Amino acid sequence: MKLIYIKRSTRRERRYTKKMGMFSPKVTYIKKMVLGLPIRTLHKYRETYYGRVKDCHECSLAR
């Protein structure tokens, strides 16, 4: 078993943008794990309806 490794997980989240309003895209998290415990999130991104990959800083969770 490795001590330090990288894990990628995908889940649906509710997001809000000014142009589209409320929607629920698939958000992918890339996390650094030590002994099976998450230490920090290295990157998080989402895929648009058109197949483009965007960073999650462009959309907010508040209305």
Rank of each mutant, 00 (worst) to 15 (best):
K26N: 09
M20K: 15
T41V: 12
D55H: 14
P25Q: 11
Y45W: 10
R12K: 15
T48F: 11
P25E: 01
T41W: 01
R46Q: 05
M33K: 07
R14L: 05
R63P: 13
P38M: 03
T48R: 10
I30G: 00
L35D: 06
G21L: 00
C56M: 14
G51T: 00
K26M: 03
L61S: 09
Y49G: 06
S9L: 15
L37F: 08
L35M: 10
M22E: 13
K26W: 09
V27T: 07
I30W: 02
G21N: 06
K2L: 12
T10P: 00
C56T: 09
I39E: 01
K32S: 06
R15H: 11
G36A: 07
Y5C: 13
V53Y: 09
V34R: 10
E13R: 15
M1Y: 13
K19E: 08
K18C: 10
V53N: 02
R11F: 13
C59F: 13
E47G: 08
K26T: 06
K32Q: 05
V34H: 04
M22C: 10
Y49P: 03
M33V: 11
E58V: 12
L61D: 04
L3D: 05
P25K: 11
E13W: 08
K19V: 10
I6D: 03
Y45S: 01
R40A: 09
M33S: 04
P25M: 00
R63Q: 09
Y50V: 11
M1T: 15
E58L: 05
S60M: 07
L61G: 10
K31D: 12
S60P: 05
E58M: 09
C56Y: 03
R52F: 04
A62E: 04
Y29L: 11
R52G: 08
Y5K: 08
Y50D: 13
S9Q: 15
D55S: 12
G21M: 04
C59D: 05
